[in-house]
Write a protein that binds this DNA or RNA. Sequence first.
DNA 1: CCCTTGAAGCAACTCCTTCGCCTTAAGCCG
DNA 2: CGGCTTAAGGCGAAGGAGTTGCTTCAAGGG
Lengths: 190, 190
Amino acid sequence: MSPRPMTRPGGRSARVQESVHAAVRALEAEQGREALTVPLVAARAGVTPSTIYRRWGDLQELLSDVAVERLRPETEPADHGALRTDLEAWAEHFLEEMSSPPGRAYIRDALAGDPDGSHAGQCSAYAAEQVGIILARAADRGEPAPDAEVVMDHIVAPMMYRLVFRPGPLDATYARGLVEATLSSLMPPG
Amino acid sequence: MSPRPMTRPGGRSARVQESVHAAVRALEAEQGREALTVPLVAARAGVTPSTIYRRWGDLQELLSDVAVERLRPETEPADHGALRTDLEAWAEHFLEEMSSPPGRAYIRDALAGDPDGSHAGQCSAYAAEQVGIILARAADRGEPAPDAEVVMDHIVAPMMYRLVFRPGPLDATYARGLVEATLSSLMPPG
DNA sequence: CCCTTGAAGCAACTCCTTCGCCTTAAGCCG
DNA sequence: CGGCTTAAGGCGAAGGAGTTGCTTCAAGGG
């Protein structure tokens, strides 16, 4: 989970990591992200600044690390009994979380301090995992379902592209529209 | 074009901006982006560091500014006489440029130093403009054509999502496939 | 229980970054 | 065309972020 290989995941290293992450979350809430500096976080976490520089490189990579953690889904997508409703509910929930001010900030942070793209990859892996669960359920029910790649390209990608690259609001209607279009192209009306 | 409102676009301000941009491009080419610092760029550009800090805020915003400039398309999309071939050629060209190492670096820089999303918005505006030209040509020819939003959602967004969020290579085949899928859903085979 | 070794603490140094003040010149208006 | 107003750039000092070598600590293995 940490950006650098942690050959000793237990004990002190883990405590330091958690302490630093907690310090970032606390200071973000108290003073806003603008006010964060590495020495400040270090002091709050009870470690020396050089520890943070050595493990994370710089403030941005640390913030990216914390942001990815917060973008991890906490629960499985709700089961509504049918592929269409499952996908609609998940897409609406996903878009709502991601387009909220904190959601946008986490995405921004996750991308900004991510020199090798691994944090961005983790974000899309989270979404792919949720989608996979929904599609597996559909398969269990015997419903025809699109491929996971199709869902990523036609539902997740447009939402995330708009979030990251285009100004302007996004609402649940847009998410539902993407789901409808994807499912109806799966089973043409003809 | 500059991140801060330029109430005096002419004369010295414009010269300083161009000089600083040129210094960034030169030092990037000579020493790599890792080596860049604000004082280094300032020295090369013949300005004082405080000028850069005042106009751009920090190194990342400056690099983002330069990156957006480099992502601006230099020519109109080629005219191949038909919507399908125009879109295919443009999508392939777009994906090839964006997925190249420098292209990926520019996208990363453009997003990283972009606190308010205006640079990201500029990037998508460039793509939308190119798409608009292609669609307008199709309309002139009397060809049925999808809406620009459909092209952005179904062709541009999947490519950019994969570029930014997913590891792994991307090739012209993928771009063509997106175009085919979009056009064939426009005119169902039935 | 000791040994190895990666990680954290410490401290000193470098240099990035900020800020106040002054100077320059762009754009305006008579 | 020539002075006037006012952004914007230059300069220098002060403060703090970021870096590094060395030392100390403790996790995990023998």
